Structures are given as C-alpha cells and as structure tokens.
Amino acid sequence: MKTEEAGDSILETWTVDEVQKAFDNHEIVLIDVRTPQEFMFEHIEGSLLMPMAFFVADALPGQGEKRIVFHCGSGARSEKVARAAIEAGMARVAHMEGGFGAWKGAGKPYIGTNMANGAPHRVNS
C-alpha cells in the first residue's frame, strides 16, 4: 500500500491483491465509480456503484467498521473521487491502483456479460 498525505488526511493506494484480501475478509466497502453502463457490463461482485458523475461525499457510509476503497477502470477516476472525499472531510480514504483493468489483468474473479445471450455470469480468470 502506498500512502500520501493530503492536507490533514491520508490517501491510500491499494494493490489489487490487497483489495481482494480485505474484500474477501469483509474488511472494506468497495465502491465502483465508473458509469452505470460500465458496471452493468462487468464489475466486481459485491461492489457498490456510485458513479463519479453523481458522487456525493455526504452519502458515503461511515468508516467506523470498514474502510472505503474506490475503484474505476484505470485508477484515474477513483483517485479523483478519493481526493474529493478527503476534501469533504474523510480522514483516510483508499483507491485501487490500476482499477478494474488491473483486477482483470491479475486474473481476479468478476461478473461479466455473456455475449451470446446478454446475461451476467461469473468469470473466474
């Protein structure tokens, strides 16, 4: 994990392996900030959707029990959202380095779309 001071807060950048381990252990809330269309086509099972275009920091859950980790397609949007959350007063915020592309590239499981029938299906790379 990389950390960066952002004012009085800390921005954390997690690897896909760190995210998967924490997610599998129910230690984090994983929030996808991509568009609804991107999410519907493929996403990490169990992640929540809060598109960057509609991001409202006040609507985020508290971090008393679980850390919030944002992700997008490449890591650029999730970093912007993480910084916006910090500006809104959150003390420690994380995002996933490389985004969903890195998740897929590492062979992590996700929900994809079966191109033959348009139905969602689990992909266990």
Rank of each mutant, 00 (worst) to 15 (best):
I28M: 06
G64E: 12
V69H: 02
L49P: 07
F54E: 15
G98L: 09
D8E: 15
V56R: 14
A53S: 15
E79R: 13
E42Y: 09
H121P: 00
I111L: 07
M90R: 12
R92L: 08
A53F: 04
R34Y: 07
A94I: 06
R92H: 13
K80W: 03
Y110S: 04
T15V: 10
E45I: 03
N117E: 05
M50W: 09
V19D: 06
T3I: 11
R122L: 14
A88M: 09
P51S: 12
D32E: 10
R77D: 02
E12H: 15
I10R: 12
W14N: 02
R92A: 11
D8T: 14
T35F: 03
P120A: 12
V93W: 02
E65S: 13
T113A: 00
N114I: 09
C72F: 01
G62L: 12
D24M: 09
G64R: 09
S78R: 01
F55I: 07
A116K: 13
A22Y: 02
S9K: 12
C72E: 00
G89K: 09
A53D: 13
E38S: 11
P61R: 07
G7M: 10
W103K: 04
T13A: 14
Q37M: 10
F54S: 14
D32H: 02
G101H: 10
S78L: 08
T13M: 14
I28G: 03
F70Y: 12
H71T: 10
G98W: 04
E87A: 15
D17P: 00
D8C: 04
P109Q: 09
S9M: 08
N124F: 08
A91C: 04
M115R: 14
F23T: 05
E79N: 11
A57V: 07
G118V: 07
D58G: 13
G112F: 06
G64I: 01
G64H: 10
A59D: 14
Q20I: 03
C72W: 05
